[in-house]
Computed example of a mutant assay.
Amino acid sequence: MIDEELKELLDFKAEQYNNTAFVADDPVLVPHLFTERGDIEVAGFLTAIISWGQRTTIINNAKRLMELMDDSPFDFVMNHTKNDLYLFDDFVHRTLNSTDLKFILRSLQNILRTFGTLETPFTIPFQTEENLYRGIGHFRDLFFGIAHPVRTLKHIPNIEKGSTGKRLNMFLRWMVRNDKKGVDFGIWNQFKPSQLYLPLDVHTANASKKLGLLTRKANDWKAVLEVTLKLRELDPEDPVKYDFALFGLSRFDKI
């Protein structure tokens, strides 16, 4: 049964935070520096992958990545050679170092040269079953389908081993939601917003627990499923709009 009072609160908070004012201090600012689909995809993916830690640091490091690629991320990924990767020799973001980044760029090149977009690898499993869980797993398998450093495996979430997949789910939210509010891009059309999973982090998890949307103590994939199913009851068409509400309630309203 839907708790109408809870739905009213979350709808209000989603509306409050899901607007262009949210962009300035959020990592989504970085892909918003671009207008071409390819640039948005690459900038969005790279920004999402380093989105843990302080938001100011995430934004600054993501902007530095864009500058190192001459502010043409799609063109750089598509056309760089091994000799070009020296540009990233000094790049570090927390535990992600230049070894990780150089592989990530090579893998993105492999995927984009094969498919032309990052969307297709997520959608291939949908030919037999509409399950984004399988799509996320397939993308990761493809990402590490070329020779890779073992250390880099930890930087692409593995939901099949229980990870929340927060960074991939956030990237998918950016690409898929198309509500025209000025935050998410909605440039992918092979998915429905109803299929998305909540990008569960410490803020959205804490708010979810305090509001009774989440009972599981561990922040893992089972927790993502539990809270996402509750959010789908509140809005079956666009459950992940409540990411804004839950994040804002914890981060700004301090519930």
Score class of each variant (00 low, 15 high):
residue 9 L to K: 12
residue 11 D to P: 01
residue 14 A to K: 05
residue 17 Y to H: 10
residue 21 A to P: 00
residue 21 A to C: 04
residue 23 V to C: 07
residue 24 A to Y: 11
residue 24 A to N: 09
residue 28 V to T: 11
residue 32 H to Q: 12
residue 32 H to G: 03
residue 34 F to C: 04
residue 35 T to K: 15
residue 36 E to I: 01
residue 36 E to N: 11
residue 43 A to M: 08
residue 44 G to A: 07
residue 44 G to N: 03
residue 44 G to H: 06
residue 45 F to V: 00
residue 46 L to K: 05
residue 47 T to D: 07
residue 52 W to I: 03
residue 53 G to K: 09
residue 59 I to E: 03
residue 60 N to K: 14
residue 65 L to E: 06
residue 66 M to E: 01
residue 70 D to L: 03
residue 70 D to T: 01
residue 72 S to G: 05
residue 74 F to K: 12
residue 75 D to P: 00
residue 76 F to Q: 02
residue 77 V to S: 03
residue 78 M to L: 15
residue 79 N to C: 06
residue 80 H to K: 07
residue 84 D to G: 02
residue 87 L to W: 09
residue 89 D to H: 13
residue 91 F to G: 00
residue 92 V to R: 15
residue 93 H to D: 03
residue 101 L to A: 02
residue 101 L to M: 12
residue 103 F to E: 03
residue 104 I to L: 12
residue 105 L to M: 09
residue 105 L to K: 07
residue 105 L to C: 05
residue 111 I to Q: 03
residue 112 L to P: 00
residue 114 T to G: 01
residue 115 F to L: 01
residue 115 F to S: 01
residue 116 G to M: 10
residue 117 T to P: 04
residue 120 T to G: 00
residue 121 P to L: 08
residue 123 T to G: 02
residue 123 T to K: 13
residue 124 I to P: 01
residue 131 N to K: 15
residue 131 N to V: 04
residue 132 L to F: 13
residue 134 R to A: 12
residue 136 I to W: 02
residue 136 I to M: 14
residue 138 H to D: 07
residue 142 L to A: 04
residue 142 L to P: 00
residue 143 F to P: 01
residue 145 G to L: 08
residue 146 I to A: 06
residue 147 A to G: 01
residue 147 A to C: 02
residue 151 R to S: 15
residue 152 T to Y: 09
residue 152 T to E: 08
residue 161 K to M: 11
residue 162 G to E: 09
residue 164 T to Y: 09
residue 174 W to E: 06
residue 175 M to A: 06
residue 177 R to D: 03
residue 187 I to V: 13
residue 190 Q to A: 14
residue 191 F to L: 13
residue 196 L to V: 05
residue 203 H to I: 04
residue 204 T to E: 07
residue 204 T to H: 09
residue 205 A to Y: 05
residue 206 N to Q: 14
residue 206 N to S: 14
residue 208 S to H: 05
residue 211 L to W: 06
residue 216 R to D: 00
residue 221 W to E: 02
residue 222 K to Y: 10
residue 226 E to A: 06
residue 228 T to K: 08
residue 229 L to K: 15
residue 231 L to W: 07
residue 233 E to K: 15
residue 234 L to V: 06
residue 240 V to Q: 06
residue 248 G to Q: 02
residue 251 R to S: 10
residue 252 F to W: 09
residue 252 F to N: 13
residue 255 I to L: 15
residue 255 I to T: 02
